[in-house]
Design a binder for these strands. Structure first.
Lengths: 144, 144
DNA sequence: TCCTAATTTAGACTTATTCTAATCACCGCT
DNA sequence: AGCGGTGATTAGAATAAGTCTAAATTAGGA
């Protein structure tokens, strides 16, 4: 889907009518390296360990802008807190009910939903699946 | 699944170690009649039009208790706000990207996911699907 | 009826997110 | 180099969602 070299990002941003500021690049770079589905606050803390610094408002502005532009995806799972991820590949999510850990599940691992019900009486454009259960490490910890 | 006559609720509550207070019954009754996926605040406002009154804390306490007991389900969709529904039948959700309207989609309308990927490297106990697109009325409004 | 643990309550508090108004940075133009 | 304008960033205030506290009330069993 989206590739993340600086120049590609730059042109895609411009296409979306957005300037590529150091803060925006930093957020996107951070997210594209992370698989932790961090909250805005976590992103702010991690980012501010080094240049460029970003205020809370900027983190939110940036995340919203990147979401609108399609670079970033926000997810809301089991509490009233947004979590963010770079849009790199298409995937669903698995959440461990014991430790809360969130894992990506590539779409290839889940056979596509049949078109049938999807078209029923509304136009479904896309869908995401949240699976819940026990992750490997919690499972071991329980079974020992 | 769960039936909602007073006596059935009573015994199920008891089984869950919960007292059946007027507030709890009111919340559950309200939710089992609603298909609007209301927020806690919306529930509080609607409830307080008549007896029994419930404070904000009670609404949250009650919702959490009912969730734990399996009578109520909380969902988090596109913003940092919890929405609630009575657990009556098993269904997924459709969200209109234009008007935000949330619709239930019975599981029968969506062929079950294959077991394959689900079992991959974690124990999936259940899953929910959030479909997004355009609902009927927004579609008409656009197509006219 | 009486007792006790569970529940409700108002309001304070915490946390998540948005808003505001001022400053700052970049860009094209002179 | 200097100017002006648009858009971004900022600190901090404001709003909103949810939790906590300590005191008063109540459900439900003895």
């Amino acid at each position: 889907m989206t590739t993340h070299t600086r120049s590609q990002i730059e042109s895609q941003m411009r296409a979306a009518g957005l300037k590529l500021t150091p803060q925006r690049f930093a957020v996107l770079d951070y997210l594209s390296r992370s698989s932790a589905h961090p909250t805005a606050e976590q992103i702010r803390i991690d980012l501010n360990r080094r240049f460029p610094r970003a205020s809370r408002a900027t983190v939110y502005n940036t995340l919203n802008a990147l979401c609108r532009a399609g670079f970033v995806n926000a997810i809301y799972l089991d509490d009233a807190v947004g979590r963010y991820e770079a849009v790199i590949n298409s995937h669903h999510h698995f959440v461990c009910r014991a430790c809360g850990h969130i894992e990506d599940v590539p779409v290839e691992h889940v056979r596509a939903l049949p078109q049938k019900g999807l078209r029923a009486n509304r136009k479904v454009e896309n869908y995401e699946i949240v699976m819940r259960g026990i992750c490997d490490s919690c499972d071991e910890r329980t079974t020992d």
